[in-house]
């Protein structure tokens, strides 16, 4: 296994307005590492949607970003309620977010589909009542 550059973030679940801070930081860090802008954009959008999800559904969580020579891996972990039906959650337009989230511009059932759209691989491991781990990979080749 090649050596990775590692970034770790705690996503605060208390405050919706601060959601996205980790994604902003990841964007800055990747820019500094000289990653191509179009790759950075895909990663920041996927990470941002993931962050928003953790704040909306799971009262926050943790994000780890690993930068390898040929790929970038994002691992988002929360101890939220878990996803009962992953297949359903992946459908565009399906959402369990409360109404007040929609008035904030999210909760349209686009988060997970967007995360899949912008990454080369996405794996969801979720246990109801325990939490969810989402692993996303973007290839650099």
């Amino acid at each position: 296994m090649d050596e990775a550059v590692r970034f770790h973030f705690v996503v605060d679940g208390e405050d919706f307005t601060s959601a996205g801070q980790a994604s902003v930081q990841v964007k800055k860090n990747l820019r500094r590492l000289g990653i191509p802008p179009e790759v950075i954009r895909k990663i920041s959008i996927a990470m941002y949607e993931g962050e928003i999800n953790m704040v909306i559904h799971a009262d926050g969580g943790e994000a780890e970003v690993l930068v390898y020579e040929d790929r970038i891996v994002m691992i988002l972990t929360d101890r939220g309620p878990g996803i009962a039906d992953v297949e359903k959650a992946m459908q565009e337009g399906y959402s369990t977010a409360p109404d007040n989230v929609r008035s904030l511009g999210f909760g349209a059932g686009m988060g997970l589909p967007n995360m899949k759209r912008y990454t080369d691989d996405m794996k969801i491991e979720s246990v109801v009542g325990e939490g969810t781990t989402i692993t996303m990979t973007v290839l650099l080749a």
Partner: peptide, 17 residues
């Protein structure tokens, strides 16, 4: 262009360059 007014609007714009 948006009628929504919260910090996530700015962050969204930032993520999209």
């Amino acid at each position: 262009l948006t009628g929504l007014c919260n910090p996530q609007v700015i962050r969204t714009a930032e993520m999209m360059d």
